[in-house]
Amino acid sequence: MKKIGYTTGVFDLFHIGHLNVLKRAKLECDYLIVGVTSDELSMSVKNKKPVIPFQERMEIVEAIKFVDEVVPQVNYDKLEAWNNLKFDRMFVGDDWKGTDKWNQIEKEFAELGVEIMYFSYTSHTSSTLLREVLSKI
């Protein structure tokens, strides 16, 4: 049976850390769906408008050979995403591991047979770091 994987991100100022997450996720599933965070959701949560417009970020992620499908992420309701996409595994940054929110999501998903896999972030590269460097130019 085909394993469907799901991960999400803003994917602003696409860098090697993003690529590594997508590459690792694809190794853990047969079909990888990636949710790209809308500008509005990013603004409401991070209070930052992405540098790269939403449509362009969608196109960039679609062009990655490890990605099989790209969908907009317009909210953080993971159960709603599962209802729409029926994935078997979800890939999340390990900075969320052990938080109340993700412990609860793990419990809910375990009942649905969905496995949460945590990946460590690339510490030496981040869009926030790139944004800071660019602002000094």
Rank of each mutant, 00 (worst) to 15 (best):
P72E: 12
A81Y: 01
D39K: 01
A63C: 05
H18T: 05
V71F: 04
F109T: 06
M90K: 07
S42N: 12
D94C: 07
S42P: 02
E111Q: 11
K101S: 13
M58R: 15
I52G: 11
T122D: 00
H124D: 08
P50V: 10
L130M: 06
I33P: 00
D88N: 11
D95Q: 11
N20K: 15
T122W: 02
S38F: 05
R24P: 01
L27K: 14
N47T: 07
M43F: 01
K26T: 13
H15W: 03
N47W: 03
L41P: 03
A25L: 01
S126L: 10
T7E: 05
G113R: 15
L13D: 06
Y118N: 00
V92S: 10
L129R: 08
I60P: 12
I105A: 01
V114N: 13
K2S: 08
K86D: 03
I105G: 04
E56T: 09
E132M: 07
Y76W: 15
G9I: 05
W102P: 03
K136F: 02
K101D: 10
Y118W: 03
K65T: 15
S123F: 06
K26C: 12
E115C: 12
K86P: 02
L19V: 15
S126V: 12
E108G: 12
T37W: 09
K86H: 09
Q104N: 10
K46I: 00
F66N: 08
L112F: 13
V71A: 00
G113M: 14
I33D: 05
N83K: 07
D88K: 07
C29G: 11
F14T: 03
V36C: 01
V74M: 14
Y6D: 11
V61S: 12
E111G: 01
E132R: 13
M90R: 08
V61A: 12
W96T: 06
N83H: 09
S42E: 12
P53W: 14
I105W: 08
F91V: 04
V92H: 08
T122Q: 03
Y76K: 13
E59Q: 11
S44E: 00
E56F: 00
L112K: 15
T37C: 09
Q104I: 05
A25C: 11
R89P: 10
T99D: 03
L79C: 07
S127D: 01
K86A: 04
S120Q: 04
V51F: 02
F87S: 15
R131D: 02
E28A: 07
Q104W: 07
V34S: 01
N20L: 14
V133A: 06
I33V: 15
F66D: 10
L32D: 04
N83A: 05
K2H: 07
I64Q: 14
F54K: 11
I105V: 06
M1R: 10
L19T: 14
P72Y: 14
R131C: 00
Q55C: 06
E132H: 13
F109L: 05
E115S: 10
A63W: 01
N83D: 09
E111D: 08
P53L: 15
G17M: 02
V21I: 10
F14H: 04
M90I: 04
W102Q: 11
K48G: 00
D77E: 14
F14K: 02
R131F: 04
Q73G: 12
Y31H: 04
K65S: 14
R131P: 02
Y31F: 05
S135R: 14
R24A: 12
V92E: 09
T128L: 02
N20R: 15
V114A: 12
N75A: 04
I105P: 09
L130P: 00
